[in-house]
């Protein structure tokens, strides 16, 4: 059994691996096994989804990668440069904005905490807001924004430090379908333009297939990796969303998900 280890930055990690999980598990204080052990490699620039039923530990896995929750066993390695604080961006299930601060100040927060010079910081905040299409809302307060717009602010905040890795915890689950589709498309555009490694947690088969290059299907309690489905489709647009190919991938993912749940039920 490996010693519990904190998230480590590793410059010696094989050059094309961004995140490596080895035998990572989480047992809560009350003895409930929440996660794993799981092994997972995420390549640099890859977009993967963790797909599973609610409470399967996929969010826990994400929080362990971010260093927000300590793993009880195994080790997590993240390739990155020296500026550890800036190598990860995290988008929560809720927008998680500071209601007392304007959109600009919310996005500024990570830079302010890292003591980035004001002029440089303001420029980067402007860029990040531009990227998510909210440039003219910089001086607005979060309460004046719609759910989708708040999520965009949250995304801009995660991107403002220019992290190598973007972790997203069911970010669009609470949004209506039209807004979600729009944000899915925008996220893909951003991902192509910025070349980030994205780990996206979702319980939606359709969302995971549409977005990712690889879908990791997880079982519940404890969360383990049940299947991996590579989504080999270069074009991700509205045509893909209505194509037979997309439907076939969704069917495969649904079957894998049902299988994972069944396997659990029998055991």
């Amino acid at each position: 059994m490996a010693e519990p280890a904190p998230v480590a930055l590793d410059r010696n990690l094989k050059s094309d691996i961004a995140i490596r999980l080895r035998q990572v598990g989480k047992v809560y204080d009350n003895g409930v096994k929440a996660l794993g052990p799981i092994d997972l490699d995420v390549r640099k620039g890859e977009f993967i989804s963790l797909l599973g039923p609610s409470g399967c530990g996929k969010s826990t896995a994400l929080r362990i990668v971010a260093g927000l929750t300590a793993a009880t066993s195994g080790e997590v390695r993240i390739a990155g440069h020296a500026a550890a604080a800036q190598s990860i961006g995290f988008v929560f299930q809720e927008p998680t904005l500071m209601p007392w601060a304007t959109v600009h100040d919310n996005v500024l927060l990570p830079l302010k905490l890292a003591h980035v010079a004001r002029i440089e910081a303001d420029r980067r905040v402007g860029d990040a807001l531009e990227r998510v299409g909210l440039a003219e809302f910089a001086q607005t307060y979060p309460r004046e924004l719609s759910g989708g717009m708040k999520m965009r602010v949250s995304l801009a905040r995660a991107l403002v430090t220019d992290p190598d890795v973007l972790l997203m915890d069911e970010p669009f689950a609470a949004l209506d379908e039209i807004t979600r589709f729009k944000l899915n498309n925008d996220l893909l555009t951003l991902w192509r333009g910025l070349n980030k490694t994205v780990v996206f947690v979702t319980h939606s088969v359709f969302e995971s297939v549409f977005l990712s290059q690889r879908v990791i299907v997880m079982t519940a309690r404890p969360g383990r990796i049940a299947a991996e489905i590579g989504i080999d489709a270069p074009e991700r647009n509205e045509d893909f969303r209505t194509s037979a190919e997309y439907a076939a991938y969704c069917r495969a993912a649904s079957i894998a998900l049902a299988h994972a749940s069944d396997a659990k039920a029998q055991s």
Partner: peptide
């Protein structure tokens, strides 16, 4: 989650 964010950064 906001506390988590501050911890993350």
């Amino acid at each position: 989650n906001l506390s988590g964010l501050f911890q993350l950064y």
